[in-house]
Design a protein around this nucleic acid. Structure first.
Lengths: 115, 115
DNA sequence: ACAACACTTGAACGGTTACTCATATGTTCA
DNA sequence: TGAACATATGAGTAACCGTTCAAGTGTTGT
């Protein structure tokens, strides 16, 4: 085995090749957001209900309003959820179809085979 | 807003509804595995090369053999990668098509819009 | 049998992170 | 204006995680 190998396999033009260092970090960050049961419950709720306010999300995910708010802040910062403010309530929803696809893929294939 | 709401939205029968508590935890665990740049680089490498030994994976991901081995151990434990042993080398590959789909989805949609 | 090799594993340490609690901001209604 | 409400945020702390280092297992070739 090549203990010092030619390593960086050149990007083949076709399907997006190996992601750049920056892309890897961003990807890791986003996956990290999905890596917490609390946040995942929040997103599972949003996956079903489209739009929910913080206190309902908190209740639905079984966490304090404060914890939910902190979590939603993170998710917002990375464009995983978006917020619509109306009066004193904030209505959260999944940011886009990619997020929904990711969740669907994950939820659908859990339990059968594996993720 | 209902500060104590009816909370648990009943599962609609159709598309897999809200995942169970156990499923949420498993999902979070798996996403957690993808949440590390090092592991993500390992998997990006496997996504291109199908099968690689530990030292090449380590080099490709820019980490020590030990770190790579630890990482692969975790990935293996959760069926994200699988290993084939031949002599003194271990050949790793992605465990199944779901993992590949997840990676493809992630890699493909990074940069355009967002994850 | 011995040395080099490919990989694994355990311990330990440093950084990150996800809560709680307390407090702040902004909104609605009387 | 003042009280109740919905959410946001800062500080602080406890738990988790990823790395390194050192040592261990099993394999190949001489």
């Amino acid at each position: 085995m090549s203990n010092r190998s030619s390593v960086v396999v050149a990007d083949r033009g076709e399907l997006p090749g190996r992601p750049s260092e920056e892309e890897v970090r961003e990807l890791a960050r986003v996956f990290g957001l999905l890596a917490d049961p609390g946040r995942l419950r929040l997103m599972a709720a949003l996956r079903e209900c489209d739009e929910m306010c913080v206190c309902d999300l908190a209740a639905s995910a079984g966490q304090s309003v404060s914890a939910a708010s902190h979590a939603l802040r993170l998710l917002r910062a990375h464009r995983v959820v978006k917020v619509r403010r109306a009066g004193r309530t904030a209505h959260y929803s999944l940011a886009d179809s990619h997020v929904r696809m990711l969740l669907d893929l994950a939820v659908t294939h859990i339990g059968h085979g594996d993720v």
